[in-house]
């Protein structure tokens, strides 16, 4: 029986008067890659932002290993072992690659441990080592995405949230990023992946949820959803 890592129970979130999530329920088991697909504005990013407390939910429960996250500020949620590479990468453009990674380990006091984790990130993305002293803002889109994921890994999270990691990247880089996602997962990190590239996301995940205008409309093993005619038509661009 797999252990539940994260569970959302009828979570609703809103920006002012606009309700972005309307009672979303989902669960992630330990060791899984779960993907959340849907159109623009369906609430994918809001789901991640609600989990990390950037948009505190209005109602419902968010449970991480049984602990309720709703009322916690973001920095405490990160301390529990959740980390996120946000949409648009949000690299600190005025800081170097090294400083960006250091900030990722902001809550980790063990310098030796951080050093080892940094090596792991470089093994995953050797390109970052070549850019080590460069300012984050001078990196290419793909390199920024590597840095965003690497930075999120620096806190040694048990649950990694990725928001549109393939957005705007050339096909070859998309491949690199998804290969890295697989590798991170194999090393034991559970992943919740938000993607508009449904094709790749379904290929590289165990289970999937489909989000439409703030509600979950479909769920199941990724392979099964990839063969579902409705998913194929709406998200995989087939008639």
């Amino acid at each position: 029986m797999p252990k539940t890592m994260l569970e959302l129970k009828i979570v609703s979130s809103s920006y002012g008067a606009i309700e972005a999530l309307k009672g979303v329920s989902l669960r992630i088991e330990q060791g899984e890659i779960v993907t959340l697909i849907g159109a623009n504005g369906a609430g994918k990013s809001t789901t991640l932002r609600s989990i990390t407390g950037l948009v505190p939910p209005v109602s419902g429960d968010i449970l991480f290993e049984g602990q309720r996250l709703n009322a916690l500020p973001t920095h405490k949620i990160v301390a529990l072992g959740i980390s996120m590479a946000p949409e648009g990468r949000a690299i600190f453009a005025n800081l170097t690659v090294a400083e960006n990674l250091e900030l990722g380990a902001y809550l980790q006091p063990d310098a030796a441990q951080n050093e080892r984790q940094m090596d792991r990130v470089i093994t995953l993305f050797p390109r970052l080592a070549e850019r080590w002293r460069q300012q984050g803002g001078t990196l290419s889109g793909g390199e920024q995405q590597m840095l965003a994921i690497g930075r999120a890994l620096m806190s040694r999270p048990r649950l990694l949230l990725l928001d549109e990691p393939s957005l705007g990247l050339a096909p070859l880089l998309v491949h690199t990023i998804f290969a890295a996602i697989d590798a991170i997962n194999k090393e034991g990190t559970t992943i919740l992946l938000v993607e508009q590239n449904a094709n790749a996301a379904l290929k590289h995940s165990h289970r999937a949820y489909v989000l439409e205008t703030g509600s979950i409309v479909m769920e199941g093993p990724s392979q099964q959803l990839a063969n579902d005619p409705r998913v194929r038509e709406a998200y995989l661009g087939e008639k």
């Binding site: 990390t52 407390g53 950037l54 500020p73 973001t74 920095h75 990160v78 301390a79 980390s83 996120m84 946000p86 949000a90 690299i91 600190f92 453009a93 005025n94 800081l95 400083e99 250091e102 900030l103 990722g104 902001y106 809550l107 930075r151 999120a152 806190s155």
Partner: peptide
């Protein structure tokens, strides 16, 4: 460095675990 991070992007700084 945390201060520079906050001034660059408040939400991203929060995600680093910065209070």
């Amino acid at each position: 460095k945390a201060m520079r991070a906050v001034s660059f992007n408040l939400d991203a700084a929060r995600l680093m675990g910065i209070n």
